[in-house]
Amino acid sequence: MTALATRIRRIGLPRLAVHLSVLLIVIIWLIPTLGILVTSVRDRDQITTSGWWTAFSSSVQTSAARLGDPSEQRQEGAAYVIAGNVFEEGAAGTVRAFGVRVQEPAAFEAGEAAEIGDGETLTVNEDGSYVHASTAPFEGSRGQRVYLSVASAPEFTLENYERVIAAEGLGQSFINSLTVTIPATIIPILIAAFAAYALSWMQFPGRALILATIIGLIVVPLQMSLIPLLRLYNEISILFGVPSKTYAGIWLAHTAFGMPLAIYLLRNYIAGLPKEIIESARVDGASDFEIFMKIVLPLSFPALASFAIFQFLWVWNDLLIAIVFLGTGRDQLVLTGSLNALLGSRGGNWEILTASAFITIIIPLLVFFGLQRYLVRGLLAGSVKGG
């Protein structure tokens, strides 16, 4: 306890509270993500009978089976016997309990000789073999119905992903999302980087007014501009005889919506770079373009990566702009649109929904973890180095 108290004092209570809070947030975020991943590779029948946290243990399912019909009976001494196995050929499992009434599917333990009335006894063993015996000949054309509690070993499969990508059309939607997101992330970064440098290190009339306008545009809801922008696209398409719903259109829309925040973040970062470096380069005869390309751009990589994460995640998870500016056809639908359609048509198929959801989040996860070391550095630098 003394060592622990010393370590806590060394770290400091405020800092320790921050670390614990971050750890709690990570755990809260990680648990549902892990649940989606595990559920997406489980067998469909096991998903409906047990939670994902039991995926690595045996799951118990209640099922019904019909025993052999009276034509299969044989006489053994004074008893008439029907024997067989409740499992179909190729099926596997362990019978834990059985019953002959739907209200009591686990009335008897496996291996127990159960008295089921009229001089009949039934024994169902763990391996599924059964012996149905009676003191009188069996009559009728159908065998006795029996209810079983069967424990099945954990089953994992990639068929859910194969079905989602092939049959459900998410493969094309995945490509559509990449086609939309990659250019819609790169284009605003390129334009915003040039604008941020100009607003930071170049003197020209109206610079402060332009910066104030950009800051004001950050808080403007994009929904306000959807209808006017769509009308503009339609008028241009009619004027030049080109389709209005194209990838170029949605790239420009995402670029316009992402530019204000991009310029603001990058400008704050670039304005905080050491002034001596810029002035020394100018003394050596470097032009503004050379200063930007050879000095500012390499030093601004953390800020560029920070905005790239935000823009990529925002565009990848977008549904509204994709529907408005690209369309809802099967060849144009992005991943979020396909997932939304599956929620309506496959709401009960958890194996389909979870596999689709994990396909949707796998790329953002890779982007975030690949660039996250630059995220905090870029945001903090941009927040304290404003010029």
Rank of each mutant, 00 (worst) to 15 (best):
Phe204Trp: 15
Phe204Cys: 09
Lys294Glu: 14
Gly249Leu: 01
Leu230Lys: 05
Leu313Gln: 09
Asp284His: 06
Pro228Asn: 04
Asp318Ser: 06
Tyr247Ile: 03
Leu266Gln: 07
Ile295Lys: 11
Thr328Pro: 00
Leu320Thr: 12
Thr213Leu: 14
Ser300Glu: 05
Asn317Pro: 06
Ser338His: 04
Asp318Thr: 02
Glu290Gln: 15
Ile210Gly: 08
Lys245Glu: 12
Tyr264Thr: 13
Ala262Tyr: 06
Ala322Ser: 12
Met259Asn: 05
Tyr269Cys: 04
His254Cys: 03
Pro260Met: 02
Ile263Met: 11
Glu235Val: 07
Leu239Val: 13
Ala212Leu: 15
His254Arg: 00
Gly347Met: 09
Lys275Ala: 14
Gln332Trp: 01
Pro298Ile: 08
Pro298Lys: 00
Gly347Trp: 08
Leu229Pro: 03
Glu279Asn: 07
Ile218Tyr: 11
Ile227Ser: 06
Arg231Glu: 14
Ala208Lys: 14
Leu339Ile: 06
Ile214Arg: 02
Ser338Cys: 04
Ala286Arg: 11
Pro221Gly: 02
Asn349Pro: 03
Leu226Ser: 05
Leu226Phe: 12
Glu279Pro: 00
Ala253Glu: 06
Ile236Arg: 09
Lys294Asp: 13
Ile295Leu: 11
Gln332Leu: 06
Phe292His: 11
Ile263Cys: 08
Ile278Pro: 01
Phe257Gly: 12
Phe301His: 10
Ile323Lys: 02
Leu319Trp: 08
Leu313Val: 13
Leu222Lys: 11
Ile321Thr: 15
Ser280Gln: 13
Asn268His: 07
Glu276Trp: 03
Arg231Gln: 14
Ile270Asn: 05
Asn349Gln: 14
Thr213Glu: 08
Gly285Lys: 08
Gly241Tyr: 01
Ser237Gly: 15
Gln332Val: 02
Pro298Gly: 13
Trp316Glu: 00
Phe310Thr: 12
Ala248Glu: 13
Arg231Gly: 08
Ile215His: 06
Ala286Asn: 08
Val242Thr: 11
